[in-house]
Design a protein around this nucleic acid. Structure first.
Length: 666
DNA sequence: TACAAGTAAGTTTTT
DNA sequence: CTTACTTGTA
């Protein structure tokens, strides 16, 4: 009799065994990326090539190798992507995966900055400005400094905000940025420089940080305070960055700083899917990764597991029409399926009817609404379709485009809460005060300084606006009472929202006599959402960094388990996939969007169409209307998008719609 | 002087 | 639909 052999695990690296059969579950390229342990690595991953899968298995592999989950940092572009990833790692490893740090660049920056705020002289209770807030501040600074109000040609606040933000994302001075990207604003150079400086000063003074500040100040913190950098480097031994092609110069620098001590940085991305240059991203960044981390290993994932060959052919032919050649060629082993189709509709409404009808048929065929998406270039492209879907009782959720937290009524409510969290937030005070009947910007601006300085804002409001005999006394004292109530100890954020809504309801009715019920419904849903927050600060931060963006029938959506169709801008659909995808408004003048004229902008639109096509697994429909309405020129004849010009007719067959003679059919 | 109401023009994509 | 400027009113 021979003895049984019992293996002792975990003593030597060679004897290491893993619960997960990595070699059996991954292809050789994925396996190479997943088992890569130390040192920089760049994974160039084509659409549908298992990019997310690779990230998840790498995280699992690290943890199984003894790396503590807390020392893994996963940076993604959306919180949704981060959560999805953490969920899937937990699916693999169970509780062993708990504790992985992750989030967007901005939310990570927020967390670190609040902890180390004193090191770079910012207040820990800083307020985050979203784009609309930024524009409000710019306007305020502009009027205060007496800068150009008469000149009609002076750029609007949104253009100024775009300029300032772009300069910072590309790490340029205002002068350089105007020179390179905004030459038409050159005549206002001096004022714009002054305005940008005023804007910066104002934020510093008031404890305000905009999106760009979050990244910039974190970079500054890491740059100037070596102990902090070393601490973070030690805390996060393994850094993984998703969608690296959409990073800009600031984010690339941040990644470099975070990985400086250990070099354990994995960047994953696809240069052909770079669609955020308007935010300062440059798809060439991904090719510069080896320059950032010399000696970086490069792995390409080129096998597509998502789409059938017919869909991949469309995607490949679209991207092959690009002036710039990208780094990979996708292939798949998924043969068969239905051929993609280019559908020509008479007008926009026929386009909508076709999509709705086909979706109903798909449901008959057993395809759930959850497995279907309708994608489009711009948020407003789906308006007509939304009406048609409602008519057909097809439930849907819309992502992207319009944002609820940027609507006036939600911003109004939030402003009342923001002044509680940060009494120095003068822009929010301005908004709050101007809502008081009888108070305009003049009165508000005069009252602000006193209120900001005051230990008790309620008393300051009373003394500024509610003098005896003042016609605004009643309204002002209601505001003062509200402020006192909001500052009560132990009050929950949801209760605070409730108090503000009580105060705000009559103002809402007054300001929007035509559609206040709809806005009121929004606010009710908004209050439901706020139930889950424990602190006002965390709520306000999340509203700025990850605002609720989904809408149901034009109203803010709350979490629901109902199976629904997805409508989405292509930008918001990134990284996601569906069995069936419709792409509507595939017409020149809509896609590419008419605003882009530079060759580089057109190239990005082409990549955008590539992203759209590669979202589909089994069926793909491109739809466009012949009769298009344009406000500028009236009705015009629609042409298919120019990106389809070079396509082989066999790759994308066409179909036309006709009305049924039989009135009993659609 | 300051507020409110009314008019005319421009409207991509997101943290 | 929102922004920015113009006109009307207290």
């Amino acid at each position: 009799m021979t003895d049984r052999i019992i293996t002792l695990r975990g003593q030597s690296p060679t004897a290491k065994t893993y619960r997960i059969d990595y070699a059996g579950l991954l292809n050789p390229a994925q396996l190479a990326a997943v088992t890569h342990r130390d040192g920089p690595i760049l994974v160039v991953a084509g659409a549908g090539s298992g990019k997310t899968r690779t990230l998840i298995y790498r995280a699992a592999r690290l943890i199984e190798s003894g790396v503590a989950p807390e020392s893994i940092l996963l940076l993604t572009f959306t919180r949704r992507a981060a959560q999805e990833m953490l969920r899937r790692v937990e699916g693999l490893l169970g509780d062993g995966a708990r504790g992985i740090a992750g989030g967007t660049f901005h939310s990570f920056a927020n967390t670190v900055l609040r902890r180390y705020s004193n090191a770079i002289g910012i207040k820990p209770n800083f307020t985050i400005l979203d784009r609309a807030d930024m524009e409000d501040v710019i306007n305020l600074v502009r009027t205060r400094s007496g800068l150009v109000t008469r000149d009609r040609r002076f750029p609007k606040k949104s253009a100024i905000a775009g300029l300032i933000s772009m300069a910072r994302n590309k790490r340029r001075t205002i002068a350089d940025e105007i020179d390179i990207d905004y030459p038409h604003l050159a005549e206002h150079l001096a004022e714009l420089i002054q305005l940008a400086a005023g804007y910066d000063g104002y934020k510093k003074e008031r404890g305000l940080l905009d999106y760009d500040d979050l990244l910039d100040r974190l970079t500054e913190l890491l740059d100037r305070h070596e102990p902090v950098r070393l601490k973070l480097g030690a805390a996060y031994r393994y850094v993984m960055v998703d969608e690296y092609q959409d990073t800009n110069a600031v984010q690339a620098e941040l990644v470099r700083q975070l990985g400086r001590e250990h070099g354990n940085v994995m960047a994953v991305g696809d240069d052909a899917q770079s669609i955020y240059s308007f935010r300062g991203a440059n798809f060439r960044n991904i090719m510069d990764f080896p320059a950032l981390f010399p000696g970086a290993r490069i792995i390409k994932l080129e096998e597509n597991y998502r789409s059938v060959q017919g869909i991949l052919n469309v995607a490949n032919e679209v991207i092959n029409g690009a002036a710039e050649k990208y780094t990979k060629a996708l292939f798949t082993r998924r043969e068969g399926g239905v051929s993609p189709l280019l559908v020509r509709a008479g007008d926009e409404h026929m386009q909508s009817r076709f999509v709705a009808q086909r979706i109903l048929d798909l449901r008959e065929e057993g395809i759930e609404l959850e497995e279907i998406a309708v994608l489009f270039r711009s948020g407003f492209h789906s308006f007509d379709l939304e009406l048609e879907l409602q008519r057909c009782d097809i439930p849907f959720i819309k992502r992207g485009g319009f944002k609820f937290v940027e609507t006036a009524h939600i911003k109004d409510v939030l402003a009342h809460l923001r002044v509680v969290a940060n009494p120095a937030d003068a822009v929010s005070w301005l908004r709050v005060l101007m809502l008081v009947p009888g108070v305009g910007h003049r009165t508000a601006e005069r009252a602000i300084d006193g209120i900001v300085e005051a230990a008790d804002p309620a008393a300051a409001i009373t003394s500024a606006l509610a003098a005896p005999g003042d016609r605004r006394a009643g309204a002002a004292s209601r505001l003062a009472d509200l402020m006192t109530a909001l500052r009560a100890k132990g009050i929950t954020p949801a209760r605070q929202v409730g108090l503000v809504m009580e105060y705000y309801a009559p103002i809402l009715r007054d300001a929007y006599p035509d559609d206040y019920p709809r806005r009121q419904r929004d606010l009710d849903h908004f209050q439901t959402i706020t139930e889950r927050y424990r602190s006002l600060e965390s709520m306000l931060t999340e509203m700025a960094l990850e605002p609720p963006a989904d809408s149901l029938g034009g109203v803010l959506a709350t979490d629901s388990d109902e199976a629904v169709l997805t409508l989405s801008t292509i930008h918001s659909a990134k990284g996601l996939e569906w069995r069936v995808v419709f792409l509507i408004w595939v017409a020149d003048g809509r896609f590419p969007a008419p605003q882009g004229v530079e060759p580089e902008e057109i190239e990005e639109e082409r990549r955008l169409m590539y992203v759209a096509a590669t979202r589909a697994r089994d069926e793909l429909y491109f739809v466009y209307p012949i009769y298009m309405f344009d406000r500028a020129v009236g009705y015009t004849m629609g042409q298919p998008s120019r990106f389809l010009d070079s396509l082989n007719p066999e790759t994308l067959p066409t179909a036309a719609l006709e009305e049924s003679d039989d009135t009993s059919e659609g």
